[in-house]
């Protein structure tokens, strides 16, 4: 089902993008633009399918963070968490690697992925 999504981060990005898509389609402001949306609940099946492919421990962490934030997963760019915009110490940045699904922002608790 998720052919081409290699890493946990890829799966989490795909999941979060789908959750965002669903939110957007259900937004009244979007509805006013007049685009066809069909049955939005059709996304739910794919969301559940993606969740099933993610390591259960990571999925539980993601859902736990999601109870607090709409965007549990955010990028780190130029050493800054794009959830809370706190800058990481250089030494901490050096420990991170792209694709690492275990990085958590110590300031806001969100899951992070690194953008080079």
């Amino acid at each position: 089902m998720s052919g081409g999504l290699e890493t946990t981060i890829d799966l989490l990005i795909a999941l979060q993008d789908l959750l965002q898509l669903k939110r957007d389609l259900e937004d009244n402001s979007y509805g006013e633009l007049g685009f066809e949306t069909g049955d939005v609940s059709a996304i739910d099946e794919e969301i559940e399918s993606l969740k099933a492919e993610i390591d259960p421990t990571i999925m539980r962490r993601y859902e736990s963070i999601r109870r607090k934030y709409d965007r549990p997963l955010v990028p780190v760019r130029r050493g800054v968490c794009y959830g809370c915009f706190v800058k990481f110490p250089t030494a901490r940045m050096a420990e991170m690697s792209e694709g690492d699904s275990a990085i958590i922002c110590e300031s806001c608790g969100r899951m992070l992925y690194l953008i080079s």
């Binding site: 081409g4 999504l5 890829d10 990005i13 795909a14 993008d17 789908l18 898509l21 389609l25 007049g34 685009f35 066809e36 949306t37 069909g38 049955d39 939005v40 059709a42 996304i43 794919e46």
Partner: peptide, 18 residues
């Protein structure tokens, strides 16, 4: 690839050909 999948999913819900 991720972007393509997402756009395709959006199109499956309703064409953006207006």
């Amino acid at each position: 690839e991720e972007l393509f999948r997402l756009l395709k999913k959006r199109e499956n819900l309703g064409s953006t050909g207006i």
